[in-house]
Design a binder for these strands. Sequence first.
DNA 1: GATGAATGAGCATTCATTCAT
DNA 2: CATGAATGAATGCTCATTCAT
Lengths: 218, 218, 218, 218
Amino acid sequence: MSNSEWINDLINDHDAPTMSDKQRKILEAAIDTFSEKGFAASSTSEIAKKAGVAEGTIFRHFKTKKELLLAIVTPTVAKFVAPFFIKSFAKEVFESEYEHYEDFIRVIAKNRLEFVRKQFPVLKIFIQEIAFHDELREPFQKLFTEHVYQKFKKIIEHFQEKGEIVSLPPETIMRMTASSIIGYILPRFLLFSDKEWNDEKEIDQIVSFIMYGLTGKR
Amino acid sequence: MSNSEWINDLINDHDAPTMSDKQRKILEAAIDTFSEKGFAASSTSEIAKKAGVAEGTIFRHFKTKKELLLAIVTPTVAKFVAPFFIKSFAKEVFESEYEHYEDFIRVIAKNRLEFVRKQFPVLKIFIQEIAFHDELREPFQKLFTEHVYQKFKKIIEHFQEKGEIVSLPPETIMRMTASSIIGYILPRFLLFSDKEWNDEKEIDQIVSFIMYGLTGKR
Amino acid sequence: MSNSEWINDLINDHDAPTMSDKQRKILEAAIDTFSEKGFAASSTSEIAKKAGVAEGTIFRHFKTKKELLLAIVTPTVAKFVAPFFIKSFAKEVFESEYEHYEDFIRVIAKNRLEFVRKQFPVLKIFIQEIAFHDELREPFQKLFTEHVYQKFKKIIEHFQEKGEIVSLPPETIMRMTASSIIGYILPRFLLFSDKEWNDEKEIDQIVSFIMYGLTGKR
Amino acid sequence: MSNSEWINDLINDHDAPTMSDKQRKILEAAIDTFSEKGFAASSTSEIAKKAGVAEGTIFRHFKTKKELLLAIVTPTVAKFVAPFFIKSFAKEVFESEYEHYEDFIRVIAKNRLEFVRKQFPVLKIFIQEIAFHDELREPFQKLFTEHVYQKFKKIIEHFQEKGEIVSLPPETIMRMTASSIIGYILPRFLLFSDKEWNDEKEIDQIVSFIMYGLTGKR
DNA sequence: GATGAATGAGCATTCATTCAT
DNA sequence: CATGAATGAATGCTCATTCAT
């Protein structure tokens, strides 16, 4: 199985097979509403109206409003970090065609951008609410530190040993890499989603920036 | 007037001279509460209690809850972008000791970090709420596009002409610069504020990253 | 047929032969719940869960929640007063071995205590709810005034004619007799059901009290 | 100070001086409603309507519906047992004109009957709800066992030593005394409050019954 | 007959805001 | 200027009951 395959696999929506029609409608309406007004400013009555169900129906499927939030956010966040979750992730990277750090982050970036494009409303909710709900922050922090961070770290160390990238602490490398990519994605979808974007080209530029900075000496 | 002077000038709290004791207490309590729970999830009665005033007193000073939000956020945001607001800003940069883009962003970064340290709760509120309130977003967008962006653009073009930085669109350069810095500041205060940070050194690393990337070929 | 026989007959559970398994489980669960939390504070969904049936099943067997209450309370109350209901009741008493009022109330007391022991939860529900439901109070009042009261009255008059008890109005005699007995039974089950009780002895004391008061001059 | 004086003193409504007009109206409406339909079946909106206030006003004065219940019931129950609460209670009894147990319970009975007449709705609520609320039962049990029971016990022992009443356990004597009186009061107000009652005469009969039973040998 | 999803009225409680004092 | 009682709409959630399967 080639890299592109297993990555794509994780992205596809193979979940929610047990979800009823109403349940899906409620989730959609809730995503809409939370995303637009924020969790605390959204009322369950509005969500019910938008979903075309009675208010009581929401609470038959989700015990509380907060549980509805978690039902929206958890699977998407899980899928977002899923590629890093795979056991063989780091190994695959080393043995793969990704000869350079550059290639690696380019693939990750393009692939995760695709995911963000599809799931932006949910990710927006996540970003907004993670600051206020322990039930959201704690599992995510665990997920991140125990899996994403560990795997990413090994990969960085691998390329540092190859002498390809500087010897800063891996978390610093990670932060720089991540914030450069996120610094594109966030405004792209949050502030200027109506603008036309050539994502392919932008990502190439960002990757280039990550590797060589702004001086252009490459 | 040297650069350091006018910058410091803008930071100092020369405002709020007309504010009564109660008013200040209300603002402090509101910052606390909004920052901790978010605007929508904070109740005016809780703020009143925390401020040690009667519920009605808040509405004597701020017509609505939203006006209270604006009263908190507006002056701080204004001060945050103030350096770019000054007419002579760009000119000063060109003629100043900042021979290199590197020096320029280093000063900006350190200086704005200082500001963020002091004002983080307010800026957190701003970041959280800008997505939901037109009254917040519109003036800020105007401020940004008409002043900050324009000035920053000129500066970038200046250094591009000097051949110091690559010929990407100025907004791309800006985004890369900004997100590298913000990508340090945000986690630093939002997620790991209890950790000990050597900000001076971190910023030097970030500036170096912005200029030369991760390859270390410099 | 001796007295003890017909009395025992009425107590035995010869009813509910047409009741399905589910129906019985629902009734049991409802008795549990109503008794513990009161009728109004009990929810049908909780009862359904406790009974191990679907929410809808309750309403297949009992049109409304109130009908469920009546189905619980009515047969038990009927059985409680049943001894007084029997046509030959008074006559049997006169011709029976009960030479004295004392013997009569002793048998009734012991016998009804036995019944209360078995059915306390249901009787508790009855006592709690009779004040609030006309559907409960009216048939009971009718039952009581037309049967229990009439029969009891004749018995009291019988013993008054024999000069065995004072010539107060029969209802006063009845009230004194009843409240002395009930004044034992109620706290015994309601407040101190965990304490060990020697019911036999207690009833003897109560009967003695009813007959001779507290002076002990007998 | 004669006995009748200190007893009357305790009965009079010297409380609630700090209660606002609205607060009193809410309490009255709540007593009405709770008494008529029971606590759980009463809605705060109905109480608000009956009291002529907004629903929110109820919750400004009483944090929860249950607190409203306690605010109604606690002071009345306290006043009901107040006579037994007084330090000198037992001593006064011994040295007083109450030469006989009979006189003592006659005064108590008449006096408490008067109280019940005025406060019946509240006492009805208490009786109904004590079974379901620990917050109600626990303080009352404490009050009763630590004060009422102790004092009453001493008085009973006093008259037992005088050879005036039988040597049953004091709590049995108490139960018999109390249930005879309560057995009059409860039906009198609960079931037949519309009937005309000669309370004076009835109580004399009850006291006589308590002392001498139904045989009339006195 | 039994289920349990669906309903929408109703619930206790909270809210931002007003206004008489 | 400050208060805090009063408001009534709105909130998240529960309820008894219905009905298609």
